Computed example of a mutant assay.
Amino acid sequence: MGDAELLQGPLNAVHTEFGATFAPFGGWSMPVSYAGTVAEHNATRTSVGLFDVSHLGKALVKGPGAKDFVNSALTNDLDKVGPGKAQYTLCCVDNGGVLDDIIAYYVSEDEIFLVPNAANTAAVVAKLQAAAPDGITVTNQHREYAVLAVQGPRSAEVVGALGLPTDMEYMAFADAEFEGIPVRVCRTGYTGEHGYELLPPWDRAERVFRALQAQGAELAGLGARDTLRTEMGYPLHGQDLSLDISPLEARVGWAIGWGKDAFWGKDALTAQKSAGVKRTLLGLKAVGRGVLRAHLTVKRGDDVVGETTSGTFSPTLKVGIALALLDSAAGLKPGDRVEVDVRGRSLECEVVRPPFVDVRTK
């Protein structure tokens, strides 16, 4: 896809104004960094970072019984939460593979708002539309709302300075206003830090974005978002979760409501749970110098025991880290050593169970 074909968010001109570098991601032109990925990463861990993630999808499921319909389709159990809460969930296919991972906002029994990944929004909406019973509508609202993530120890201070609510539980949300602009505020994020995701209307997002920056939030791009989420071991769909990597393999089985009567992929996932997975997503931390990337071969001695799915340099730990699918038959556990083939050079790594960074004690 050429640059001319890439979709643009509502704030691309603003990002250009502040000197962002751009790269394609999920079919969108995304700001990668402003002052440098390491600086933006560290600002988020120590103070507060501001991310424009408006490329994320948005979809509305509405009508009598909307909650029950979504609950019969997606993996997690909405009956465990209630109105005003958000929930991490998965849209699976018949073989147990993951079409997408999604945040579901429980607005009411008759209204569920979904935030899928950018590249998968159309597919998720189409699958839900095809299954929706009479009276329930599924609407693609991709360009109706922006998504601004305010993440870090000072995030409540910055969001609160705009008169927006901050005193809420993790995964709770509230609808509010800033200078007459409706904003949905949710205590969620992809960094592991205390943070919020704000959803203003697409065409009024700039005013909110500039107000947050004026309160001292450091602009941060896709590069820092990736290093931050990798340090936490959060999976990225298309790399650590996919149609070929099941929730159980990716260690997100906690997002499955096993007691529900039905959800897409239940039979296959139940069988896999009973049989046990043949590979598991774990972390690798470089012992020596070297940067880990995706799709590198992992060996123990002469035996190939897995492959990396995500990899980066950890600005917090100052070492290379990766997520990797490791063969269950190898019996690897945290503390074991393996070797990763990095461009023909063997890099010794320690197997760890993510997160790599404990944000409570760092």
Results as ranks from 00 to 15, higher is better:
residue 353 R to Y: 15
residue 270 T to R: 10
residue 255 A to I: 12
residue 82 G to Y: 10
residue 231 E to N: 08
residue 210 R to T: 09
residue 57 G to H: 06
residue 96 G to S: 00
residue 302 D to W: 12
residue 93 V to R: 15
residue 204 R to E: 10
residue 257 G to H: 03
residue 217 A to F: 02
residue 268 A to N: 03
residue 285 K to R: 14
residue 74 L to D: 02
residue 141 Q to K: 14
residue 157 E to H: 05
residue 202 W to A: 02
residue 307 E to H: 09
residue 176 A to Q: 03
residue 218 E to L: 13
residue 108 S to D: 11
residue 50 L to T: 00
residue 4 A to V: 12
residue 217 A to H: 01
residue 119 A to G: 12
residue 275 A to H: 12
residue 256 I to V: 13
residue 171 M to T: 13
residue 26 G to P: 09
residue 112 I to A: 03
residue 132 A to S: 06
residue 39 A to V: 12
residue 283 G to D: 00
residue 299 K to T: 15
residue 20 A to V: 06
residue 335 G to S: 06
residue 105 Y to H: 05
residue 229 R to P: 00
residue 291 V to P: 09
residue 294 A to Q: 09
residue 60 L to W: 12
residue 153 P to I: 05
residue 212 L to T: 06
residue 197 E to G: 03
residue 298 V to I: 06
residue 285 K to E: 12
residue 65 G to V: 02
residue 361 T to H: 12
residue 325 L to T: 01
residue 167 D to K: 10
residue 297 T to A: 13
residue 279 R to A: 02
residue 204 R to N: 11
residue 204 R to K: 15
residue 21 T to G: 13
residue 91 C to P: 13
residue 25 F to L: 10
residue 22 F to S: 04
residue 159 V to S: 00
residue 276 G to H: 09
residue 341 D to R: 10
residue 247 P to W: 04
residue 119 A to V: 11
residue 214 A to C: 09
residue 131 A to V: 09
